[in-house]
Amino acid sequence: MTVLNALRERIESHFPSTAYADPSPHAFQPAPLLAFATRVTNAYAADARLVDTDAAGSWRALLTHAIEVYEAVRPCLDITYSTRTVYSGPEDIVADLERGRLEINTEHCEHPLWTPEENCIFRIAHDIIPHALHLRPFSLEGEVLAFHDHVRKAPPEARLALFTEIFGYAAIRYSTGVYPEAQKCIVFPELLAEYEAAFLPPGGSAQA
């Protein structure tokens, strides 16, 4: 069994998928997706808070999930940390995983609610679940689909935090060319609902 297949088996056995549809192909087009991403970017910039205390529980649920993913995959991998740009695409991650390795970039790990170590644990889960197991590319479309992949594996309470941590930062990166200077723990339930209404098929946001 390859390392990637072993990781897939571990993820599938520990985290059964819940219902969350893929975007509708006719709606999931570059221009409307970028326009929506710009709205997310503007909403993020307009909120001066670093932490929405009412939403902190969503980040706790997401961190608990990320730690569980880390514990499930850790026996298969030699995980190292660096400050260099490690991978240029999902194929590079897969190639390293097949050697039994994963390297995590530790830059920009200042987070309002997580320690740098906890932030890296989330990055491990993000690199493995959507990028390696689903080959999601490093692009706006790829990261939005990565959000879908991760919603299916994470608890419902983590969905709003996932929207910010994956969709939100990708929206900023690909609409402005750079990531934000500061990470924020703020949620956008109205924008998530609008995204699901505009880009998912009817009933596609249901999570069993």
Rank of each mutant, 00 (worst) to 15 (best):
E143G: 00
D78R: 13
I11F: 12
K184L: 01
L162Y: 05
M1P: 14
L191P: 00
P155F: 00
G89L: 07
Y169H: 02
S88Y: 08
H134T: 05
T106I: 12
I93A: 05
S205C: 10
N119C: 14
A154M: 04
F188H: 05
L62V: 11
H126S: 03
G204T: 02
T2E: 07
H126P: 05
H131R: 11
A55P: 04
L140R: 04
F167D: 10
F167E: 08
N105R: 08
I186N: 00
D22I: 00
E12I: 12
R39T: 11
P16G: 15
Y44G: 05
D22K: 06
L133G: 09
A170G: 15
F138A: 14
T38E: 15
A161Q: 03
I104V: 10
R49G: 06
E141Y: 02
Y179F: 04
P32I: 04
P137T: 13
V86G: 10
R60Y: 07
Y44M: 12
E9A: 13
E71R: 14
P25W: 06
V178N: 07
C185I: 10
P25R: 11
P201H: 00
C76G: 04
F199G: 07
I128Y: 12
A182L: 15
W114T: 00
P30T: 00
V187S: 01
V86K: 15
P25V: 03
F15N: 02
F122A: 03
R152G: 02
A21P: 09
S24W: 12
A132V: 07
S24E: 15
V69F: 09
R74I: 06
W59P: 02
G204P: 01
P112I: 01
E117I: 09
E141N: 02
S82Y: 03
P32W: 00
A193I: 13
L200G: 07
T64R: 14
N5Q: 13
L145T: 05
C120V: 11
D78E: 11
G168C: 04
T18L: 11
A19G: 05
D54Q: 13
A48S: 08
Y81T: 11
E103Q: 13
L200Q: 04
D92C: 07
P30R: 01
I67M: 04
R173V: 09
T18R: 15
E118Y: 13
P90K: 13
C109R: 12
G204S: 10
D96Y: 08
V151C: 04
Y195Q: 09
Y20S: 15
T53G: 02
Y169C: 01
P23E: 03
E12T: 14
N5M: 09
E190Y: 08
D96F: 14
Y195W: 09
G203R: 07
D149N: 05
I67C: 01
D52E: 13
R173D: 10
F167P: 06
G100M: 10
E165Y: 01
Y195D: 07
G177F: 02
I166G: 03
T83Q: 09
S139C: 09
T106F: 02
A56T: 14
P130A: 03
D92L: 04
F138I: 12
R99Q: 15
A197F: 01
A208W: 08
T38M: 15
A19R: 14
F147V: 11
P130Q: 08
S139W: 08
L63I: 03
A146I: 10
I186A: 05
